[in-house]
């Protein structure tokens, strides 16, 4: 199945609430699915574990890097390695701007890398721009199950 949902991979409930708020403030009404660690995100995407048989393809993945169990870079690597999610837009949304993370993130095929600003006003603006770009302006890749 596929829908217009956004998969938010985020372990911090505060950051989840703030991201939901920033999306709502920008009138982005797509369903938000939250995965609280990397393993949960992969289960949801590939229909494994608790999500057996229900693989889902979201419109966009917002991916934190520092996650319990399976970290964000590994999630990204697995997304790019799987034919059904190979072209899925993935935006890294994280606290760190360590050059190593940025380089590795792009190297693994991230579509964007956004550092969450401390200033909530700036964060709302960042979410507005990425929502506008990835959910409105950008022509998404053809979905493998529709092709």
């Amino acid at each position: 199945m596929h829908d217009r949902s956004i998969l938010l991979v985020e372990d911090n409930p505060d950051d989840e609430a703030l991201t939901r708020r920033a999306l709502a403030k920008n009138n982005i009404q797509n369903e938000i699915v939250v995965a609280r660690d990397g393993a949960e995100a992969l289960d949801w995407l590939f229909g494994t574990g608790p999500h057996a048989g229900r693989a889902a393809t979201p419109e966009l993945v917002l991916l934190d890097l520092k996650l319990p169990k399976v970290d964000g870079l590994e999630v990204l690597r697995r997304i790019r390695a799987n034919p059904s999610t190979r072209l899925l837009p993935v935006v890294i949304l994280t606290s760190s701007r360590e050059e190593k993370d940025v380089v590795t993130g792009y190297g693994l095929g991230a579509n964007s890398y956004i550092r969450k600003p401390v200033d909530f006003g700036q964060f709302v603006e960042a979410v507005r721009q990425l929502g506008l770009y990835w959910l409105v302006l950008n022509e998404p890749p053809p979905r493998p199950d529709a092709a």
């Binding site: 505060d14 950051d15 520092k66 994280t94 006003g121």
Partner: peptide, 17 residues
């Protein structure tokens, strides 16, 4: 860089909320 900034986002974000 990662962990010390995270609570600051909560402080700022929820104050704004």
């Amino acid at each position: 860089s990662h962990d010390l900034r995270t609570p600051l986002r909560s402080l700022d974000g929820f104050s704004q909320a």
